[in-house]
Design a protein around this nucleic acid. Sequence first.
DNA 1: CTTGGCACTCGGGAACACAGAGTGCTAGAG
DNA 2: CTCTAGCACTCTGTGTTCCCGAGTGCCAAG
Lengths: 337, 337
Amino acid sequence: MLDERKLAVLRAIVEDYVSTNEPVGSKALADRHHLKVSPATVRNDMAALEEEGYITQPHTSAGRVPTDKGYRLFVDRLSQVKPLSAAERRAIETFLAGAVDLDDVVTRTVRLLAQLTRQVAVVQYPTLTRSTVRHVELVPLNDRRVMLVLITNTGRVEQRVIELPEVVAEARIANLRAVLNSCLDGCGLSSVPDLVADLPERLPGEDRPAVATILSVLLETLVERHDEKIVFAGAANLAGADFSTGLRDVLEALEEQVVLMRLLGETTSDTPAALTVRIGSENPYLRGTSVVATGYGSGDNQLARLGVLGPTRMDYPVTMGAVRAVARYVSQILAAS
Amino acid sequence: MLDERKLAVLRAIVEDYVSTNEPVGSKALADRHHLKVSPATVRNDMAALEEEGYITQPHTSAGRVPTDKGYRLFVDRLSQVKPLSAAERRAIETFLAGAVDLDDVVTRTVRLLAQLTRQVAVVQYPTLTRSTVRHVELVPLNDRRVMLVLITNTGRVEQRVIELPEVVAEARIANLRAVLNSCLDGCGLSSVPDLVADLPERLPGEDRPAVATILSVLLETLVERHDEKIVFAGAANLAGADFSTGLRDVLEALEEQVVLMRLLGETTSDTPAALTVRIGSENPYLRGTSVVATGYGSGDNQLARLGVLGPTRMDYPVTMGAVRAVARYVSQILAAS
DNA sequence: CTTGGCACTCGGGAACACAGAGTGCTAGAG
DNA sequence: CTCTAGCACTCTGTGTTCCCGAGTGCCAAG
C-alpha cells in the first residue's frame, strides 16, 4: 500500500511543514526534495496518503499537513534521532557540572532542556521510592515540637514539623533519633513501613505516643511526597507557537502537578531509558500538544522522568536527541553524587 | 486645576475601562455614573485631564484610556483598598492552614494569590538574613563527603554536599557538628560569619583543612541563597490579557529570578508592611505591566515579599486588598510555627 | 505507472462604502 | 463664569465585492 516513494513523500511533507509552518503543496515538494518525479505524481501519492489518514488538507485546495497519525509514522519509521553537536554537548556538561545540590541539578536541567529545545521542559524530581535512607534527623524546636528531616542517598531532603502529643525531653528525642537511624540507615524507602512497624513496642511505654506521632508523619512523608514534585521552564517558548487547544489550557496544565505527571507518563518497565513520544491526541489531556519524555536516573534504577512539551508540529528528531542527551548527562551527574 | 468633578470623571474612566476593556466615551460615562452633568461637560473635563496627561485616546475620535499617570492618581487618591469578603477570608484561612512545611506554605500561598486575583502571583522565599540558626547538621555520606544541613527558625532548610579535602572519621565529624551547634544555635544568620571566624584555631590541627572547607560552604550558603528563590503561579491568567510588551517578554521575566526580584522591589525600611504599587513605566523592566507587592513576615521583622503582576489595566482596589490579606495571613502562619 | 494539461475551488488580500461612536467647537442659557 | 445643546467632522471597524494565485483532481497520452 505504501511504497518507498510514498513514505519519502510523507517524510518530505513533515520536514517541510515543520520548518515552514505552512501547508505544503505538490509543486514546492517536488522541487525542494529532489524527488525525481513530477508534481502530478506527488499529487497521486498525496491522495493515497490522505486516503490512509496520514495527511490532511486544512481546506480544499490548500497544501497538505501531517495528521497525528502521519507524525507517528514519521517518528517510528522515517526519522532518526539527531545527536547533538559537540558544542551543545560541551555546553550541557559545563552547565550541569556547576550544580551544588539536588535542587540545583533539577533547576539547571529543566532550564537547560528548555533552552536547548526551545520548548517547554518538564522535569520530575527523583522519586523517593527507590532511594535509600541516608540519615534521619530529629531536631527539637521547642518542648512540644520537633522537626523531622529525612535525607536520602539521592541527596533529597524531606522535612516536616511535628506537633507532639506531650512534652518530650530532648534526651529522649536524641535516643529516638539514634534508634531510628540504626534501624533505617541504608534501607530502601519502600521497606521503611515494615521496619518501623514494631518500633513502638520496643521502646519504653512513656515514649509511645510521641513515637507513634513521629512515625505516622514519617510514613506520610514517604507516601504523600512520593513523586509529586514537578517543575517546568521555558513557558516563554509557548508565546510563539499556536496551539489548537489554546495557550491558556497549556499554561494551566503546566501548573497542575497531576496533569503533568500524566503527560510525562510512566517509565515502561522493560526499557526504562527509552524515549516516549506522545503525539497530539495520543495524550491523555492536552490533545493538541506532543510530549517527548524519557526516564532518567543513576545506573539501572530509573528515578524519575523528564521531557519536553510542545506543539505537534515540532522537530521530533532534534527534540528527541536533546531529551535523550540531557537525560543521560543528568543521570551521570546523579550517579556521581 | 483639578476640581472635584474632574477627579470623579477620572475615577469613572478608570473603573469603566478596567471593567470593560474598551476606551470609554463621554456619553456612556455620563449615563453609567450618575454624574449629574451632560456629556458635553464631561468632554470638557476630559480635555482638561488629557491636557494634564492623565488620560489619552488611542486614536482621534475614540474613547479615552487612562495613562500610567492616571492610574497612579487613581491609586493614590481616588480609590480605597477593597477588603475581601468573609467567604474569601475563610477560604484563605483554611487553605493556608493545611500547610505542612515552609515549602508548602510558599506553594500554597502563591497559588492562592493567583487564584484570588486572577493574575500572576509571585512569592519570594523568606530570606535567611534575619532568621536565626536552629540547628546545623553534618551527615557523612562517605569518607570524603558530608552533607551540610542548616535549619533556621523560620523552618527553612538549606542543604549542600561538601567534598572534603581528606578523609575524616565520622567521630570527628560528629564532634565538629557538636561544636558548630553549640557555637551557632540561636544566633542570627548575619552574625554567623563573625562567630565562626576563629573556629579553625580552636580545633585540633588535623581537622583544620576539613573545617575550613565546611565553613566556606556554610558561609557561601548564607550569602548565595540569600533571597534568590522566587516562585510564581497563575501564568495561565496571562493568556487572556494582552500586554503591550508582548506575552513572551512577561513569561521570560517570570523565569528570571533577578528580574522578578527587581519587580517585587525592596521593602521600604520605614513602613515594611505597606503596599507597593508600581504602574507600567514605573517598573524597571517590563514597562507594560503593573506590580502590587508588599512585605510579609512574622511580627515586626519582614522576611520577604510577595505580590502579583498583571496588566496596567487591573482592578487595583481588589488586587491590593487580596495582596494585603494574603500577606497578613501568611505572616500569621509563619509566626505560629 | 508517470506525466502534462486543464478546469475548478477556495482562501486571503485589496478596494470600497458605510454606519456608529466619539470628538471639538461654538453659541446660547443659567 | 460655567454648563448645555447642537452640529460638523473624523476616525475605526465591519461587511461586501472582486480578483489573484496556489493548489487540487481528473483525464488522456506517453
